[in-house]
């Protein structure tokens, strides 16, 4: 299937959610045999305490990587995190960067911009943006993967999902979200699960086929209705531990008019969330 992660970078800082995101990165590195770069970039004028916390975090992660027998390298630099990480990505040929976003960042993602958003937009490699809301689900046992009809980077997305599931021994639950079937005069139509399944789009079939190829067992479900809301409800009802979804392709204007399901889930996710901005083109 062509995709392989050889070098994964985890952006670490003084925040605990960055450490949790780095743990995910480390497990993925373990499953893919990749080398992990634990990278901390100290901004100018950062308080000593924050610097100390970040350093301790890198140490803890490095120690854990050795325990897990993951090839790890720690990188500490000073300057602008986005710029320094970009430099490192280019010089080392990084395939994937893990970065975390915080509660306070969620509302200003679009309008003011955050380091995490800048990284996901500017880096030439794939980016996994992690939002941590629950510290108790250390190894996610149930992964929820919302899918839509037209998807890009299916190969990489399925590879990422399969490897993460393999590393944690998680079950994968695919959620195909679609608009309700309706006609002008009859309004919304009820369709049975088997009727819906006959209409599974080609891209989703491709995703399923790839998961099968990696030997990952999965359960699939189709849900007509509001995308963001239904992802959150499904995750809450079934107590999923981690949601993995693709980054939004909607621009600011379209998001303002039609809403943005990815931003909606990012804001109100009931469990930890990874948003993937992928770069590997499908072959």
């Amino acid at each position: 299937m062509g995709i392989m992660y050889k070098k994964i970078l985890a952006a670490v800082n003084e925040h605990v959610n960055a450490e949790v995101a780095a743990r995910y990165a480390m497990h993925l590195a373990k499953a893919t045999g990749a080398r992990i770069y634990l990278c901390y970039v100290a901004e100018k004028g950062i308080p000593d305490e924050a610097f100390r916390h970040a350093e301790e975090s890198v140490k803890r992660l490095f120690h854990r990587a050795r325990e897990m027998e993951v090839d790890a390298e720690s990188v500490v630099a000073t300057g602008s995190p986005a710029a320094e990480i970009k430099k490192l990505v280019l010089s080392e040929g990084i395939d994937l960067v893990f970065t975390a976003t915080r509660h306070e960042d969620v509302n200003k993602r679009f309008y003011e911009g955050t380091t995490a958003r800048r990284l996901s937009l500017s880096l030439p490699c794939s980016v996994a943006l992690v939002r941590v809301v629950h510290l108790g689900r250390i190894h996610p046992g149930k992964l929820l993967v919302p899918l839509k009809a037209r998807m890009c980077h299916i190969s990489e997305w399925s590879y990422f999902t399969a490897m993460l599931a393999r590393s944690f021994g998680s079950s994968v639950h695919l959620l195909h979200l679609t608009r309700p079937a309706s006609t002008f005069f009859h309004g919304e139509l009820h369709m049975s699960t088997s009727e819906w399944e006959k209409k599974i789009p080609h891209d989703i079939s491709g995703f399923i086929h790839r998961l099968d190829h990696y030997g990952i067992t999965h359960e699939k479900k189709l849900h007509p209705g509001r995308t963001g809301r239904n992802i959150m409800i499904e995750a809450a009802v079934k107590r999923h531990d981690l949601i993995i979804m693709g980054a939004s392709e909607r621009g600011l204007l379209r998001s303002l008019i039609r809403g943005n399901p990815v931003e909606e889930v990012l804001k109100e996710t009931p469990c930890n969330l990874i948003i993937l901005k992928l770069r590997h083109e499908d072959t």
Binding site: H15, V16, N17, R102, H103, E104, V132, M232, E268
Partner: peptide
């Protein structure tokens, strides 16, 4: 952490 995880409160979904 309060900034990272938000306040410990029950909110109405938007």
């Amino acid at each position: 952490r309060l900034n990272e995880f938000g306040p410990n409160e029950i909110r109405e979904t938007s």
